[in-house]
């Protein structure tokens, strides 16, 4: 399977720090790394959802499936910076334990550093750099609120992960799902509420056209039990990627 060479891994790690620290100099920094003119070909996926909706766990299940396709996978996992101290505790990585040693996987934790919409400073340039060294970039936003949809402008595929709580109609009004190309309902086995919610979501959210030619897809998954993830990846993420590639520019 494909790998990210160790020298590139180290360079990318360092470059992300520079772009994160000094987003205003992004063009210079990228140029200096010889990436100024390079157009990254990686498929970029933004994954957003409320805190505790299961984003990291879902990603941990998605990585091995993408690797089976021979794709090099980079993860940018964003967690909040503490307003008081300016520091951060970045804990998403732990959930991706199974992929730590995979030479084709690169995992980077980023703090929001005061950026809005559960994103972080310098993200567009970081995405570009990361996309140069990998085939798929998965961006996990910090636990997002209903209005934090900014990530959809930066990525090819926008995924929203929903915990099966409350009712779907309220969610529809809220706006976050409006931009989603793919929705994952992270169901929990044994919760009767859960199945009803997934059913409703499929009916109510899955009909809309998210962009011309692509109808939004809704997948019930159980990230913890690793169920339904394969369909989410193949019929959701990869299908949307193929759709974008087939689409005339």
């Amino acid at each position: 399977m494909s790998a990210i060479p160790d020298t590139e891994r180290q360079r990318l790690g360092r470059l992300i720090t520079l772009l994160h620290d000094r987003p205003e100099q992004a063009d210079d920094l990228l140029a200096r790394e010889g990436l100024g003119a390079v157009q990254p070909t990686a498929h970029t996926v933004g994954i957003s959802g409320a805190p505790g909706s299961g984003k990291s766990t879902l990603i941990s299940r998605v990585i091995p499936l993408l690797r089976q396709e021979g794709l090099r996978v980079a993860v940018l996992a964003i967690d909040p910076t503490s307003e008081r101290s300016g520091g951060a505790l970045l804990g998403d990585r732990v959930r991706m334990r199974d992929s730590y040693l995979d030479p084709g996987v690169f995992i980077r934790s980023l703090a929001t550093r005061g950026a809005p919409e559960a994103l972080t400073r310098g993200l567009p340039a970081i995405l570009r750099a990361t996309g140069t060294y990998s085939d798929v970039v998965l961006v996990e936003t910090a636990g997002a609120g209903q209005v934090d949809v900014g990530i959809h402008r930066l990525v090819d595929t926008f995924v929203v992960v929903l915990a099966p709580l409350g009712d779907v109609i309220t969610l529809m009004k809220a706006g976050q799902t409006e931009h989603a190309h793919v929705i994952a309902i992270n169901v929990r086995k044994g919760l009767p509420e859960s199945d009803r919610f997934a059913q409703e979501a499929r009916l109510l959210l899955g009909r809309d056209s998210a962009q011309p030619g692509w109808d939004r897809k809704v997948f019930p998954v159980d990230a913890k039990a690793n169920e339904g993830v394969e369909a989410f990846v193949r019929e959701g993420l990869l299908a949307h990627r193929d759709f974008l590639r087939r689409r005339p520019a």
Binding site: G13, S85, G87, A88, L89, L90, V94, L101, F106
Partner: peptide, 26 residues
């Protein structure tokens, strides 16, 4: 964190190879 650091936790039961790879990526 209180001192302004961005702290990454590698998790339990990591080999030193896993720690080193994580350190470079982070």
């Amino acid at each position: 964190r209180h001192m302004g650091a961005e702290v990454v936790y590698a998790g339990l039961h990591c080999s030193m190879k896993e720690v080193a790879k994580a350190a470079v990526e982070e």
